[in-house]
Amino acid sequence: MPTEIAPPLVGTDRVLAVLTELARHAGGVTLEEMTRAVASPKPTVHRALAALCRFGFAGRDGRGRYVLGDEFLRLAFAHHEARPDHLRIAPVLSELAVRYGETAHYAVLDGDTVVYRAKVDPAVGALRLTSTVGGRNPVHSTAVGKLLLAYALSDDDAVADWIGGRTLAPRTPQTLTTAPALAAALRRVRIDGYAVDDQENEPGIVCLAVPVFMASPTRPSGAVSVSAPASRTPLTTLIAQVPAIRATVEAR
């Protein structure tokens, strides 16, 4: 609310306002700065900070500035890590589905297949896709699969070993079914940082996937993708949106 019409902060509201303001200052904040920010008397702001310090939600750095406390960060990260992946990624999928008017997925790697943990369709224009929450699709024919496989298999030899003597089933005439073709695609993924499915899993459907790093900065926990009919959203359009799609994922 605008300051001129906002009610004065009292009791618990003041403590929460101080905690919220504290989170905006990664480099710490002085008592005077906090007093001005929350527009409250210095003694009452000091009491709020003291209460937060007692519970470990605030602390003082070497310069005497107030910072978020380790206990607050521990609780926040513990809660975040305990939430299932599909709940943590849901806002990203919703945002992508609204922005592009196409279906967004979150999938994880499981052997030779990907498992879809979450899916959000656009409000209008949704297509019937083979993907369902809890369902599976082949790794080699999907954008999410190739994206995750590129991280799991480090080079061409690893790709050849992974395929072994098997024949990769063609889902469409576009599906990559040989070790050399798949190895070349995964090399491209490692360079570009994203993967595509150019009507390789379903005729007429294109898809672009980017990695999601929830637990490790180097090994993705899963992949987010945007799938669309090629006639409505060509693959070139999705590729042009890679920076925006990646930024949406990373912002969450």
Rank of each mutant, 00 (worst) to 15 (best):
150 A>R: 01
92 V>N: 00
72 F>W: 14
96 L>W: 07
76 A>I: 05
150 A>H: 03
96 L>R: 07
107 A>I: 04
144 V>M: 10
115 V>D: 02
46 H>G: 11
56 G>V: 03
80 H>Q: 12
59 G>V: 04
111 G>D: 11
43 P>V: 10
120 V>Q: 03
121 D>C: 00
103 T>A: 05
42 K>V: 12
72 F>T: 00
145 G>E: 00
93 L>H: 01
140 H>C: 08
127 L>V: 09
146 K>P: 12
125 G>F: 09
53 C>A: 11
120 V>Y: 00
128 R>L: 12
99 R>Y: 01
78 A>Q: 15
63 R>G: 13
118 A>Y: 01
66 Y>V: 13
117 R>D: 12
43 P>E: 04
125 G>M: 12
98 V>D: 14
66 Y>K: 12
105 H>I: 09
76 A>P: 03
58 A>P: 13
114 V>G: 04
90 A>V: 07
105 H>V: 05
88 R>V: 11
69 G>A: 10
50 A>P: 06
145 G>L: 00
140 H>G: 11
108 V>F: 03
47 R>K: 14
143 A>K: 00
41 P>Q: 12
140 H>S: 10
41 P>Y: 07
145 G>S: 00
124 V>A: 15
52 L>I: 01
112 D>A: 09
62 G>S: 04
53 C>I: 11
60 R>E: 15
135 G>H: 10
81 E>K: 07
109 L>A: 14
125 G>R: 14
93 L>Q: 11
78 A>R: 13
82 A>P: 00
146 K>T: 11
42 K>S: 15
80 H>S: 10
80 H>I: 08
